[in-house]
């Protein structure tokens, strides 16, 4: 399948999955989100660092990493800038008896980022897997707040990155995040075939 077609099919499937994620988050936090179609792109692992530098102009970024296993396997990295992390606080904790003025600790911020990334990861990837007739299981995630987002490409066992740029828009309070699905050549081929099958048996 040619790259463009692949991207079109994947975009729509991810769009559907992201709708589920948005609804889950909105419902959990008793809020309403204007749905935005996520932006999908494919990049080679060597260009990941450049992509991140261009996308995050802040010094430090929150990142969570989580492995997933199954017929389709790899690792998801979710990255969020501090401004979005701050916006998220108002949404997650609005339903709890939290003093509005109280500053949240670094741990509480991390806790809520883990929560959002868990929901986005499981719904986007879990639902995608379901649409492609398979199942995946997630390993526990880890979180970091640092300047160095990732290992160098040479240290990573992956060759492909699918970048999903998401916006959760709660009354113009935006939480922007980038979900990086990293996989090997072999897994990428599996995904291509699965998407072709999906299109054929539509």
């Amino acid at each position: 399948m040619i790259q463009e077609e692949l991207q079109e099919v994947l975009s729509e499937l991810i769009n559907i999955s992201f709708g589920t994620a948005t609804a889950t988050i909105a419902e959990l936090f008793d809020n309403f989100a204007t749905l935005h179609v996520p932006d999908i792109s494919f990049i080679a692992i060597d260009d990941l660092h450049k992509f991140i530098l261009n996308h995050f102009n802040c010094q430090q970024v929150y990142t969570t990493t989580q492995q997933f296993k199954g017929k389709f396997q790899g690792e998801i990295v979710f990255a969020m800038d501090p401004q979005s992390a701050q916006n998220m606080q108002g949404i997650i904790f609005s339903d709890e008896d939290l003093d509005g003025a109280a500053l949240l600790s670094q741990d509480e911020i991390k806790q809520s980022i883990l929560e959002i990334s868990n929901i986005l990861g499981s719904s986007c990837l879990g639902k995608l897997a379901q649409l492609l007739n398979t199942n995946i299981t997630f390993a526990p995630p880890a979180i970091e707040f640092s300047q160095t987002l990732l290992k160098t490409p040479a240290e990573m066992p992956y060759q492909h990155v699918i970048v999903i740029s998401t916006v959760l828009d709660f009354n113009a309070m935006e939480i922007r995040g980038n979900l990086f699905i990293m996989c090997t050549d072999e897994m990428f081929s599996w995904l291509e075939r699965a998407l072709e099958d999906y299109l054929e048996t539509l």
Binding site: T24, E27, L28, D107, K110, Q111, L114, E115, N118, I119, S122, S123, G126, T137, F138, P140, P141, A142, I143
Partner: peptide, 21 residues
Amino acid sequence: KRKVKIALKLKSSTFTNSSVE
């Protein structure tokens, strides 16, 4: 409670991490 709710909703595992919670 929230994590249980999310897990059931997503039909997928949720986690808490001792370095954070």
